[in-house]
Nucleic acid binder design. Structure first.
Length: 582
RNA sequence: UGGGGAGUCGUCCAGCGGCAGGACGGCAGACUCUGGAUCUGCUUACAGGGGUUCGAAUCCUCUCUCCCCAGCCA
């Protein structure tokens, strides 16, 4: 990670940038400038501050890579801090998954794991200070009344009738709030700012609310909890954060962030906002992802169709590919939607270099080699990874009865189709040339159920002594030796690039792609895969990258298709079909 | 109609007064025992109008469009 961008001295000197350095984003530019100006003692200290109320997704990965990446690049530090100020929504299950996901992505917070709830006592003290300064008051308005008093986007708000309570009264009331004397929703502590502000966040925002709820860390110790704006900035301050990076929807919270820290006269980090990630054909909001999980549109948070870190991981994505994706999408402030094709490019690029190749037939079509002796079999040498010779070779059994892919045979082939067809000769990868001499059809349906072929014994290993060229090379598997496997094919979770696009009264869930999961149960795979372990990634030659799913058990292999290979033929076929239509 | 942001190839990101560049996608070709990978080439963009300037994507100005904000969520 470190040497991709300009490397900076901690004291602000910019080192010569490596030749392959990417241009720095606007946030890194700001930080470089801060270092140059010797602000924050020339330190760089960021933080990733998730609320433990859901699983992390690829949008969070962008933020994680940004925050931890900046710390690495500038020789600084990045904390992991849980923003756990709302006990009604947060659970330990989520903090565990978040920690695991961040580690899996390849980042380390060392001993700097913090919780906003660690600071509850200090936060309370700060609230007291605000009250004493006359900058906060206990308000008895109900939630509905607070809303009414707030005004609207275009009309100013009205001041609460409780706004001018004395410091003593406020102090006593706030202490009694903490003591549990009042029911939920009956009172709040509010900052006294400006009910006429054009920025609604400044219209006397609530900073403490009463919530008689058990917190996953503090238990029943508290029945009042601080709001985000109050807790977040102060947590940043307490931790000595220099640059508090968040998404653009918090831009109009910044004046409030600054207000609290100024009023309290404490160390004051700088908040910087960037645009959150949008990805085509999926949704990236915790609320919507929860709906998909709870509505059983997917099997869980780690369903391989989910854009969650856990989902991508189970799908077969590597941490490297995700980090690389985050580098390539860049960081800016404008709204944008990244192509899924870029994510797919990143995982192909990574797996092409590291995934061992294997032959698997997804939709088997039986092939009988008429001139190959019955009962005979031989072992063919196959290369594990042409991109990486050090990965060696393996043996693949060959025999008289084989399976090839249904798609690799056409009884009546279009001109550009150069795979197997009656009378045609093709190469079986690492094996022999075979020629189709006939087909066997199902009497009822007329469907081709078996292909008859002859082989040329001179072509063993895949080369013809007479030098004749063969255009097509097919993957195959020996019927008698191969293993059965289940393969799960995934496609976009949604039919529309933007599932939120308003279709009169339609909900995003109505655009879920019914074909997003297609399960193939009778696939055949090389016998060498017998002991493939869950999580292992392979390239199924000519098809794509696949990963062993944890649903696998002894004798029952289940694979997830991570991504297809680039498929030129599929493209040709598509344009062929379109031409036919018009 | 209040406040805060943002507009550059199809998509994402650079460019910060001096030839608009990279990546992904797309198209074409080379090569190939994966129609994979690799390599080569091509394609297309400064929201609009005025101004300042020898020179504007960049500075000024007006306009248009898009996004966010009315939780005791974060």
């Amino acid at each position: 990670m470190k040497d991709r961008r300009e490397a900076k001295d901690i004291d602000g000197g910019v080192k010569a940038s490596p030749a392959d350095a990417q241009p720095a984003d606007f946030i890194r530019n700001i930080i470089s400038e801060d270092i140059r100006a010797k602000r924050y003692d020339s330190r760089v200290h960021t933080r990733f501050p998730p609320e433990p109320n859901g699983y992390l997704h690829i949008g969070h990965a962008k933020s994680i890579c940004l925050n931890f990446g900046i710390a690495e690049d500038f020789g600084g530090l990045c904390n992991l801090r849980f923003d756990d100020t709302n006990p009604t929504k947060e659970e330990v299950e989520y903090v565990d998954s978040i920690k695991e996901n961040v580690h899996w992505l390849g980042f380390d917070w060392s001993d700097r794991l913090y919780y906003a709830s660690d600071y509850f006592e200090q936060l309370y003290e700060s609230a007291l200070q605000l009250i004493k300064k006359g900058r906060a008051y206990v308000c008895d308005l109900s939630p509905r009344e607070i809303r009414e008093y707030r005004g609207t986007l275009t009309e100013p708000g009205r001041e609460s009738p409780y706004r001018d309570r004395t410091v003593e009264e406020n102090l006593s009331l706030f202490e009694r709030m903490r003591a549990g004397e009042f029911p939920d929703g009956s009172r709040t502590l509010r900052a006294k700012i400006d009910m006429k502000s054009g920025n609604l966040n400044m219209r006397d925002p609530v900073i403490y609310r009463i919530l008689h709820a058990a917190h996953h860390r503090t238990g029943d110790k508290w029945c009042i909890y601080p709001m985000y704006d109050f807790a977040h900035g102060l947590s940043d301050s307490i931790e000595g954060i220099t640059h508090s990076i968040c998404t653009v929807e918090f831009e109009d919270h910044r004046p409030l962030y600054d207000w609290f820290l100024d009023e309290l006269e404490v160390y004051h980090p700088r908040q910087i906002e960037f645009a959150r990630l949008n990805l085509a054909y999926t949704v990236l909001s915790k609320r919507k992802l929860i709906e998909l999980v709870e509505g059983k549109y997917v099997t869980g948070w780690d369903d391989p169709r989910m854009p969650t870190i856990s989902g991508l991981r189970r799908r077969g994505y590597t941490p490297e590919s995700i980090r690389n994706f985050c580098d390539r999408i860049g960081v800016a402030k404008r709204d944008s939607t990244v192509d899924m094709a870029l994510l797919e490019y990143c995982i192909r690029e990574d797996l092409n270099k590291r995934a061992p190749r294997v032959m698997a037939v997804l939709q088997p079509l039986r092939v009988v080699i008429e001139n190959y002796p019955e009962g005979k079999s031989e072992e063919m040498d196959a290369i594990n990874n042409p991109e990486e010779p050090s990965m060696g070779t393996r043996k693949v059994p060959f025999s008289r009865v084989l399976y090839i892919e249904k798609d690799d045979f056409r009884e009546d082939p279009p001109k550009q189709f150069y795979r197997l067809a009656p009378g045609r000769e093709v190469r079986l990868r690492y094996a022999y040339f075979i020629k189709c001499t006939g087909v066997v059809k199902d009497e009822q349906s007329g469907e081709v159920v078996e292909i008859r072929c002859t082989y040329d014994p001179e072509t063993r290993g895949g080369d013809a002594p007479d030098g004749r060229k063969i255009k097509a090379t097919l993957h195959w598997v020996s019927a008698g030796h191969s293993l059965e496997a289940e393969v799960r094919l995934y496609d976009h979770l949604f039919l529309k690039a933007d599932p939120d696009e308003a279709g009169e009264g339609r909900d995003f869930k109505s655009y879920v792609n019914p074909q997003s999961l297609v399960t193939l149960k009778s696939c055949r795979i090389e016998p060498g895969m017998m002991h493939a372990a869950a999580g292992n990634r392979y390239q199924f030659e000519r098809q794509g990258y696949f990963c062993v799913d944890p649903d696998s058990s002894k004798g029952r292999l289940v694979f997830n298709r991570t991504v297809t290979l680039r498929d030129t033929w599929a493209k040709i076929e598509k344009t062929l079909k379109q031409a036919k239509k018009s």
